[in-house]
Each structure stands twice: as structure tokens, then as C-alpha cells.
Amino acid sequence: MKSILPIIVVFGFGFFMLVSFFIPLKGIQDTSQTFQNWYIGVMAFFIFIGIFNIIKINLEKIQRRLRDWQYSIILLICLLVMMAAGFIGGPEGGLFLYFYKNVQIPLGATMFSLLAFFVASAAFRAFRARSPEATLLLIAAVLVMIGRVPIGYWIWHGFPNLVEWIMTVPNTAAKRGILFGIDLGMISMGLRVLLGIERSYMGGGKE
């Protein structure tokens, strides 16, 4: 029963949602929307579980003086300050927004900026011409990079058009091929989940 009930629930709801994609009748669409709203409700509840998990793990870390436990104090203080700012002034309130704009956004932007350096280091490794495929990748990448900057046009007027062709023809063709595979894989996995063949995501394998 422990494994059968979840499979019945998954099949019932999954099959209904699949059918609702094809049937535009009001009753079906409204019910489908209700189910999706339930999910949003459940998701909102899980925010508390997430916060509880953060507090529990970091408090344990402080209590047991595990490595870098000092950072946990900072994390918990930040969590409490942001929560307090939110409760006092609301999400649009001055203090909450102030912290969000002046701490959260710059920190996120800093992490995102690292991407530029990581792209350079990853490209350096990837573009080493060790095989015919890597050589092809290297040539295509060099052409695209040159063609995307003004100096490319200055060297040869045809560079931008060549880059456009690489991006819209071979690149799009490869991408579409991958997307076809992805869609088929998703449908196949969906069917396995619906039929209860794939149940490892529920924590259970074969009966």
C-alpha cells in the first residue's frame, strides 16, 4: 500500500493533467488550474520547511563548534535581520528593499560576473585542438568571436554574415536535434512515471 497509493495518485493526477492539455472544456481547465494552485499552496508551505532546515543545520554547527562555525552565526543574523525587516516594513518596505538592493543584488552580480573569467578558462581548455571535433569547435568559435566584434567587419565585410550563417544553420540544426531528443526523452520518462515503471524518485525501486 505504501508504494501503490503514491503510484495511483501520480497516475490519476498525471493522466488528468495530460488530458487537460488537449481538452479545452471549462470544467476540465478550471480543475486543472485548481490542481496547479494546490501546488503553489504546498510550495508556499515548504518555504517554512526550508527556513527551518537552515536554522537547524546552522544552530547544530554552532553548538558543536564544527569547522567555520562562525560563518553560521553571520548567516543566522542575516536571516533574522532580513526577516525582521520584511515583517516590519513588508516586502516593499524601505529597510527590506534597502538590504535587497544594496547587499543581495551586488552579491549576486559579483557571482554572475565571475562567469566572464570562467568562460575564458573553460574556453582555453575546450578549444585546444586535440581531436578533429575540437579543431572544428575551435575554428567555429574563433570565426564567431571575430565576426561578433567590429574588428571582424574591418578585416572582412563578410564576417558578420558568415557568423549569422553559422549561428542560424549548423548551430540551430544541432540544437534542434538535441531538443528533439530531449522532448522524446521527457515523454518517455513521463510515461514511465505515469505507469509506475519508474518509481525511484519516490525513494523506491523495484518492488
Binding site: 570562467f118 573553460a122 574556453a123 581548455r125 575546450a126 538535441i178 531538443l179 531528443g181 530531449i182 522524446l184 526523452g185 521527457m186 518517455s188 520518462m189 514511465r192 519508474e198 525511484s200 524518485y201 525501486g205 523495484k206
Partner: peptide
């Protein structure tokens, strides 16, 4: 570019079945 092995698209969905 950065990993030793990569599952391309559909292989991600096939992985569990393949490993089982």
C-alpha cells in the same frame, strides 16, 4: 567544456532506466 563526462539532453532522462 568543463566536465569530464556530460549527459546530453535526452540521456539525462534515460539515465535512471539505464543505471537500473
Amino acid at each position: 567544456a568543463a566536465c569530464d563526462y556530460t549527459l546530453l539532453g535526452e540521456e539525462l532522462y534515460a539515465a535512471s532506466a539505464y543505471l537500473s
